[in-house]
Each structure stands twice: as structure tokens, then as C-alpha cells.
Design a protein around this nucleic acid. Structure first.
Lengths: 237, 237
DNA sequence: TAGGTATAGACGTCTAGACAAACTTTGAAT
DNA sequence: ATTCAAAGTTTGTCTAGACGTCTATACCTA
């Protein structure tokens, strides 16, 4: 690489890396070349490469993890936590393609926790849905949902078909429902969750615990959702 | 200076400089110690000092000018350019004390430019007000205003008394007025303006040219304002 | 097989020195 | 006194090298 005069070398390297990213040479989430590889590629000192990388980190284009490498920062999705926010609406509002995949489903007896949130007796049969929410094929969140089985018999097939709980609820005569409570915490994901999110186990997830109620205030869903903290930012208003 | 383990030296230097600033050792606008002075003071390499300074620049606490030195960044005031923005409201909204000082006033005949903006015949008698706007005693802007003399006879005394054009207009029965046009440019200040702004002549100012009209749409004021670009940032919405 | 350890890979910090670019000051010439 | 050029000051960039810290992986041991 030859340098044009008048612009510092590190700025030209920054520019080139930025071009690489927008050209898709390094896709969002990808590991970039290591510092030493960039040193060889551009034929400059390591510090010069680091100066360029620092600028990219500063402008939030890449993220550097000590001992691991530099990664192209995924565009972080702002996820407003309103009482009526719907995943698909938010994602398509950002011109990204939403998808919700069912990983597994099961009918089982409600544990004390689930029973409490759904306001049913412990041991009542509930449907457990385990699903992954994606935008443009990139997983953003994994959700575990519990629904009273008696009321929503056969909802699994509808969910798989429509890929939307909102739509499935409609088939059961629920045109409107809203978020009752949301609790937020940050944890490290289990290996299963990390795997489904396609993210490292040492990157944290944002966990929300929520209860949805129908217009009469009766709980229809209790769910725990783990958001990839690298890809989603929760907005509380 | 001795370093505590576990925290990088440059971060400790950053911390110390931050403390110096908040302790008033370096006041806003002041020139800080040069890199070499800091090198001697902290007994580290120049690059280590520069790393600390870079962090301070990044967090907008100091501003560095090549060949001149580092200066404590004055808190920049966001000045929204709406049709009804009033200087005193904006400043007191930021918990700072506004003041508007009249430097000079004169009655003279309108030049072609002034006449055009005020929609009067050239040669019409107009009042020229030259004033300085301050926040907490720090000058933010100097303004030259032209008002039709016939309509606003005696307004100068009211302005001096109330330190507010808005208030003065009220005494003339104008309870409501709004900004009609604003043109924005950046220039270097004349020595007089630089002096009044207490800023270096080689630091730019933001100039706005505006016309205020009463509720009937009749021009009541034409003004040129020079904002210190180090202390004010104009916001257009 | 499980668990700990050693090792290599990768980023973080610090030092040292040289030269470039921007700015200020000084001093000589007019 | 003013102007202009030279010298000095101050920050910006680049190179070079050493060592620290963190991570991942391979290997050894129980």
C-alpha cells in the first residue's frame, strides 16, 4: 500500500478498513485481521495500526476484546420496552427482516414460579415455547414462553405457521394484549442460549422477565427472554 | 507521583488532571501545562501523557490545539435556533445566569441592507444596539441589532433597565414576536468582537443574521450576532 | 474422562527517539 | 514603528522494542 501525502497514514488505514467493512470483506460480528496481520498488510508499525483501530473503536464501528481480537460491531437494535411493543414491528421498522423460529415446545405442569405469574394453580398444564428471534438472519434473542394449555390448545401449530405470537393470539380471539410487568437483569448465557444466539459464552445477555395480559387483565403469557447485549439495547421510556 | 497497581498510569494521570480541573487549578478556557511539563511533573514518557490527554479530549473536557497547547474546554451551550427561542430562557434553562449588556447605542440612517431587512426606505432613522450576551459572566455572543426608530423611541433605556429585548418589546405592546429568517456563517472575529468575547482572534465565531417580526409579520428587528464557537453550538431542528 | 497446567496467540501499556506541522516569539531590516 | 523571516516552542505522527494481561488450546495427570 502506498500512502498519499497530506493525510496521516493511520487515517488512511482507518479509511481502508472502513471500506473493507462496508464492502463486506468483514461482515458485522466477524473477527477482523489481527494487529500483526494488519501490520504486515499495510507495512507499518503496530502502533500505527492501533491508532487506526482506536479511531474505529471510538466511532463504535468495531469492538476489541483483549486476547481475542477485533470484531465488527453489529448494528445495535434499539428495542423500546413499551406495554405494546411487538418484536416484528420494531425490526421491520428498522428495515430489517424479522423472523421467529420455534426451537422446541412442550406441554408440562406449571412450576410454582410459572403458576404464580400466570395466576393459575401449580401443576396446571402449561405450554412451553422455546424460540429464537432473528433480524436479517442474525439471532437477537431467545425466549422461553409459558401459556396456559387449557386456553391455548393447538396454538403451537399456529405459531409455527405465522411465526408470531401476536397473530396466534388473534386466532384465539385476543385482538389486543399488553405487557404487564418487565424485570430486567444481565447474566452470562448458558451454553445452549449462547449457541442459539451465536455469541460467545463470555458476552453477557440482557434478560427480561415479563407477563402479558389480555384486555381483561388475565395473564396469557409468562416469558423469559435473553437478548444479545451486543446486538440489542433496551430502551425504557 | 507514585502509581497504584491495578490501574494503568495514563488513567491515573487522566484522573489527576480531571481533579485539577474540577479543583480549579485549571479553569475553563485556561491553557493547561504543556506535554513536556506534564512529563516532568508525572515522571513518565510523553506518550503516556498523550494517552491521558487523548482520553480527556475524547470526553470533551479539554481541547488541544497543535502548536499552541491544551485548553480546558468551556462547557458548550446548545443554542436551539427556533422561531421563538429567547436567549435568557435558554441560559437559565441550563442553570446558568444570563446577562445582556449594552455596549453602545446610536440612532442613524438605515443603510440599504438594514432598510431591506426592516422593510423600510433607505435613510429611515434606525436604532443600532450593540450588546454582549453572557452566561455566568462569560461572554457567549455579541449582537448588533437594528430597530426602526420611529416605532421604538426610548427603547434603549428600557433595554438597559430590563437587559432584555423581549421585555422591551412588551412595553411597546408586542407580546409576541418570532424569528423570520436566520442565516448562518462562520468567520474570524474582528478585534473588537474578539475582545468583547474575550477570545483569541484566531478562534472562529458563528455569525447569524436574523429578522424578527411581530405577530402581524412586520419586521421589528434586524440583527447580526456573533457566537463564540468555543462556547456555543447552534442547534437547528 | 475430567481437570489443571503450560504455552502460544492477541491485545494493552510503557518507554525511547526522530521528524513533521502548526504556532509564537524574536530580532533584523526597512 | 512595521514588516518579514528565522528560530524556538508545542503538538502530531511514525517507528522500534519490551513486557504485562487476557484468551484459547493442547497436553499432561489423576
Amino acid at each position: 500500500m502506498d500512502w498519499e501525502p497530506g493525510l496521516s497514514i493511520w487515517k488512511q488505514i482507518e479509511k481502508q478498513l472502513l471500506a473493507d467493512i462496508s464492502d463486506g470483506v468483514f461482515a458485522p460480528g466477524d473477527k477482523m485481521q489481527t494487529e500483526m496481520e494488519l501490520v504486515r498488510r499495510f507495512g507499518v508499525n503496530r502502533h500505527t495500526v492501533r491508532r487506526a483501530m482506536a479511531a474505529l473503536v471510538d466511532s463504535n464501528v468495531v469492538r476489541v476484546e483483549q486476547g481475542r481480537g477485533a470484531f465488527v460491531q453489529e448494528q445495535i437494535l434499539d428495542y423500546p420496552l413499551g406495554s405494546k411493543t411487538r418484536f416484528s414491528q420494531i425490526v421491520s421498522g428498522r428495515h430489517r427482516l424479522p423472523d421467529k423460529r420455534l426451537v422446541s415446545s412442550e406441554v408440562l405442569k406449571a412450576t410454582a414460579t410459572v403458576a404464580q405469574f400466570l395466576d393459575v394453580k401449580p401443576g396446571t398444564r402449561v405450554i412451553e415455547l422455546f424460540s429464537v428471534s432473528e433480524a436479517d438472519g442474525v439471532p437477537l434473542a431467545v425466549a422461553t414462553s409459558y401459556l396456559p394449555a387449557a386456553r391455548f390448545d393447538g396454538i403451537v401449530e399456529i405459531f409455527v405457521e405465522t411465526k408470531s405470537l401476536t397473530e396466534a393470539f388473534k386466532r384465539f380471539g385476543i385482538d389486543d394484549y399488553s405487557r404487564k410487568t418487565t424485570r430486567i437483569s444481565a447474566t452470562l448465557p448458558s451454553s445452549r442460549v449462547a449457541n442459539l444466539l451465536k455469541q460467545a459464552r463470555n458476552r453477557p445477555v440482557i434478560s427480561t422477565e415479563s407477563v402479558d395480559v389480555d384486555s381483561a387483565g388475565v395473564p396469557i403469557e409468562y416469558g423469559v427472554t435473553a437478548f444479545s447485549s451486543d446486538r440489542v439495547q433496551l430502551i425504557v421510556e
